[in-house]
Simulated scan of single mutants.
Amino acid sequence: MGRGTYVPSKVSGDGTLQVDYFTFSPSIADYIKDASLVISHAGSGSIFETLRHGKPLIVVVNEDLMDNHQSELAEELATRRHLFCARPQTLGETIQEMDVRTLTPYVPGDAKPVVSLINKFLGFPDD
């Protein structure tokens, strides 16, 4: 949740929603494994770790960042239907309107051909 002062409730008012949150964690893998939905900032590490676990994801873009490459990544992955993209002011609406059945599983690409090409260009042996 960053460095803000707001501390959310762990349980919704009607008791139907349990929320886990933290200011920092060296690994979020265990949280992701146990989650039914992940709401995250638009950092590429958080995005791809969640997608690799196959969990539904809402990425909330920080519009205050200059040269916002995070926004570009989140919007592209949303266009490809791998995740939902929201802004702070649209998060509630996104949660209410989302249908996780419309998401397409993310399949990581194979970097070996790119690595091989770079190694060849640099004169390194191909492993």
Rank of each mutant, 00 (worst) to 15 (best):
M1K: 06
G2N: 08
R3M: 01
R3Y: 02
G4H: 02
T5M: 04
T5W: 04
Y6P: 01
V7Q: 10
V7T: 14
K10H: 15
K10M: 05
V11A: 04
V11L: 14
V11W: 01
S12L: 07
D14L: 03
G15V: 06
Q18W: 02
F22N: 04
F22G: 04
T23M: 07
F24N: 12
S25D: 13
S25G: 00
I32V: 15
K33P: 00
K33A: 15
K33E: 15
D34V: 00
D34G: 15
L37A: 09
S40C: 10
S40Q: 07
H41L: 12
H41C: 10
A42L: 07
A42Q: 09
A42G: 14
G43Y: 05
S44E: 13
G45D: 10
I47D: 04
E49S: 10
G54I: 02
K55R: 15
K55V: 10
P56S: 09
V59W: 09
V60D: 13
V60P: 04
N62C: 05
N62Y: 06
E63Y: 03
L65N: 06
L65M: 08
H69N: 09
H69E: 12
H69A: 09
Q70P: 04
Q70L: 05
L73R: 11
A74L: 05
A74E: 11
E75L: 07
E76Q: 13
A78S: 14
T79F: 10
T79G: 12
R80F: 01
R80A: 13
H82D: 08
H82K: 05
F84D: 06
R87Y: 12
P88V: 09
T90W: 09
T90A: 13
L91E: 11
L91A: 11
L91C: 10
G92V: 08
E93Q: 14
E93D: 14
E93P: 01
T94W: 07
I95T: 13
I95D: 11
I95R: 07
Q96W: 01
Q96N: 13
E97G: 07
M98G: 13
M98K: 08
V100A: 12
V100I: 14
R101L: 03
R101D: 13
T102A: 12
T104V: 14
Y106K: 03
Y106M: 05
V107A: 03
V107I: 10
D110P: 00
A111Q: 03
P113M: 04
V114P: 00
V114M: 13
F121C: 03
L122T: 04
F124Y: 14
D127G: 04
D127P: 15
